[in-house]
Design a protein around this nucleic acid. Sequence first.
DNA 1: CTAAAATAGGGTAATTTGGGTT
DNA 2: AATGTCCAAATTACCCTATTTT
Lengths: 90, 90
Amino acid sequence: MDTGDRLLTPGEVAALFRVDPKTVTRWAAAGRIGSIRTPGGHRRFRESEVRALLEGEGMLEESDDMGRPRNAGPATSPGPGAGPANAGMY
Amino acid sequence: MDTGDRLLTPGEVAALFRVDPKTVTRWAAAGRIGSIRTPGGHRRFRESEVRALLEGEGMLEESDDMGRPRNAGPATSPGPGAGPANAGMY
DNA sequence: CTAAAATAGGGTAATTTGGGTT
DNA sequence: AATGTCCAAATTACCCTATTTT
């Protein structure tokens, strides 16, 4: 199977998500999506990861009620569930 | 381990980075990547170096926005006068 | 030796980056 | 906190033809 190790440009990812390329850059800077840098500093994204984000996340996670408590967290799972890494200092 | 001393053509390197072959040539001209010239003037790149550039910067990285030591690489080509690039990004 | 593909080199648009702001 | 827009600079992409490689 083609895992899709092809690389996509920021503009392509932005078109897939219907967002501004700048937003994709912010996602990469925040660690929400993996990125590969060219020697010149431009970013490339793995198609497999992008497609996983596109159609593989709206099924078994944050369904509707208990997916992501935005304020009334049980305080027992500090787990990174929604925010894996980064400190969002951008 | 396969050190990967095989030589890659500009087209191969370009496909790996998802860039234009001309861009790879520009990297070599700027000293960002080591290059070997054929007697005819064409360039060849070491697979080990290319893979180091690919994996060394975009694999287990998540928040890599600020602080990008791009010039701390192998210094294989000191690049005589090809330095209009780094040093002062902005 | 001939032919096709790739590369080098130069020059000009398009994209991307990073910061600051809305 | 997240996204979109403006700006200046850098990087990259596509145009061409000549040379090299296969």
